[in-house]
């Protein structure tokens, strides 16, 4: 529903109400009325309709990727378990998923 694009703060106006933000090659002024925490030059912010709606902490970019790797790892572990279960089923030991939830 809401188009949001991250950009890098280049400068902040004297009154602190707006910032010039770079979106990988084009620049646009964003209002800072509703950003969650104060921003400084070099920060990444999420833009929606000309307003910064969040400062994106750089470390959380890495954390998101780490989370995805974690999800992948858990899925892989789940697969191994599922294979065990299938192996057991093939061996006539029963188990596995029990239909619709």
């Amino acid at each position: 529903m809401c188009l949001g694009v991250p950009g890098k703060v280049l400068s902040i106006s004297d009154d602190g109400m707006s910032a010039q933000v770079d979106f990988f090659g084009v620049q646009k002024e964003l209002r800072l009325d509703i950003v969650d925490v104060p921003v400084t030059v070099g920060d990444y912010v999420l833009n929606h309709v000309g307003f910064a709606i969040r400062r994106i902490p750089p470390e959380e970019v890495g954390e998101t990727l780490a989370l995805f790797d974690q999800i992948l790892k858990e899925a892989a572990a789940g697969d191994l378990m599922a294979e065990d279960v299938r192996g057991e089923m093939a061996a006539g030991k029963g188990g596995g998923e029990s239909g619709r939830g």
Partner: peptide, 13 residues
């Protein structure tokens, strides 16, 4: 799954 932009409390201001 979107921790870089979303917190539990959201944007208070």
């Amino acid at each position: 799954c979107y921790p870089r932009c979303v917190s539990k409390e959201g944007n208070g201001p």
